[in-house]
Design a protein around this nucleic acid. Structure first.
Lengths: 84, 84
DNA sequence: GGAATAATTAGATGTTTATCTTAATATCTA
DNA sequence: TAGATATTAAGATAAACATCTAATTATTCC
């Protein structure tokens, strides 16, 4: 759970999650939404993946990212417990 | 919202919130729950206060901390939006 | 007023983190 | 197989962070 909250604590990473809420995207499509380098975005994607918040699947030349709704649900529940 | 997520990303701070969920506590009572120095706990309390997650009120010699349910509710809603 | 208690602030230190540039890996296409 | 594109990994750097000890502020009680 620790890595999950850490992952959520960066605005760029939360923006990535917001993008993925709409539709699955390749790393390149995600990177194009940010002014920073592709390497930096790739780093954020790695953090999100480590935290289980996103799922990465290679599709030929591309790597497609999608939200992991299950883990997001778990964080929500955890935060709900904290708030109740 | 940024400072709020940052505040939540530390396990000691989440533990403080958990303690405060049960009852309001003075800084010293909180500090006694941790193996680290009082200064370190005081730092965490400052971060939580900056984030609006807790409220500090002096009571004579002591400073009493309590959860700010409103802000916790706001984070929950924000995370809910992210997950929906 | 002065000692004692509660809590924070200041200053220092080692670690983690976000970012960059450059290099490496994987895949596709001609 | 060679070149092109997509993505990540490596190495470097500056900023942020958690923690410590020591000093400071605020309050109480004698």
């Amino acid at each position: 759970m620790d890595r999950t909250y850490k992952a959520l604590s960066d605005p760029s990473r939360r923006e990535i999650l917001r993008l993925l809420r709409e539709e699955d995207l390749t790393a390149g499509e995600i990177a194009r939404h940010f002014p920073t380098s592709w390497a930096s975005v790739s780093h954020h994607l790695g953090v999100l993946k480590d935290a289980g918040l996103v799922i990465a699947e290679r599709e030929g030349q591309y790597i497609r990212y999608s939200l992991n709704a299950t883990v997001l649900q778990e964080v929500l529940q955890h935060l709900l417990d904290l708030a109740s």
